[in-house]
Amino acid sequence: MVKIKICGLKRHEDIQYVNELLPDYIGFVFAKSKRQVDLAKAKILGSQLDKGIKKVGVFVNEDVKQVKKIAKEAYLDVLQFHGDEDESYLAQFNDFTIWKCKSIDISLKNIDEHVMDEINIYPIEGIVLDSSRKGASGGLGQSFNWNLLQRLNIEKKLILAGGLSSENVCEAIEIANPYAVDISSGVETDGVKDFNKIKKFIEKVREQK
């Protein structure tokens, strides 16, 4: 069954929602973002989280020592990197489960079939494919062309992100066959997590065989 990650949790209400609905993963964003949380908040929220849900920390070009401090003190299960982190940087986290993000422009109609070659040699478990547009990535609420993935040699677990919703996630799963789907803005209303949207999204994913 496809795993589910609800990213960008920052309120006690968000924790209550996921504790009831039980996605597989949740994400705390430590990078600059409207969904950013600091270590203190992540520790408080994480302590209230159902033990069966794994915690993912999202970082962008953060100092290695600071990432390790946050990972240890917030009891993170997965470290997810969205910046320019290279192979040597990622190799410093060999005691952790690592996901690395790569953005795909929503305007692309074709894609270099070797685009994943560098990622495939990285010491990581999963690759997060997110949407970008003219240099801006993440949180766009728009998806790239999932059919482009059929040309890519993806050797890591695929975590599909970018523009997902309860309306399109079934199609996304059918085309991309991901390990997990990752959603944030698609389950929000007026910038905050919406219980009913999360519920509907999770139900749609788990209807898939």
Rank of each mutant, 00 (worst) to 15 (best):
K3V: 01
I6V: 12
H12S: 00
E13S: 09
Q16W: 02
Q16C: 02
E20R: 15
P23G: 12
I26Y: 01
F28L: 04
F28T: 02
F28N: 03
F30I: 01
F30T: 00
A31H: 04
K34E: 05
L39P: 09
L39S: 09
K41M: 09
A42D: 03
Q48C: 10
L49V: 04
K54V: 01
G57Q: 06
V58Y: 07
D63P: 00
D63L: 07
V64Q: 13
K65R: 15
K65L: 14
Q66G: 00
K69E: 15
I70P: 02
K72A: 10
E73A: 02
Q80L: 09
E87Y: 13
Y89Q: 08
F96I: 00
I98W: 10
C101V: 13
S103G: 14
S103F: 14
I104H: 14
I111D: 13
E118I: 04
E118T: 12
I121L: 11
V128E: 01
D130N: 09
R133S: 12
G135C: 08
S143F: 01
W146P: 07
L149V: 04
Q150R: 15
R151I: 01
L152V: 04
N153C: 05
I154H: 07
I159E: 10
I159A: 02
G162T: 12
G162Q: 12
L164N: 07
L164T: 06
S165D: 00
E167W: 09
E167L: 11
E171C: 07
A172C: 05
I173P: 08
A176F: 03
N177Q: 14
P178A: 08
P178W: 04
D182M: 11
I183T: 05
I183P: 03
S184P: 04
S185Y: 07
G186P: 10
V187R: 12
G191R: 15
V192I: 10
D194A: 05
K197N: 08
K197Y: 14
I198N: 04
K200V: 09
K200Y: 07
F201M: 10
I202G: 06
E203C: 02
V205P: 09
R206Y: 03
Q208V: 14
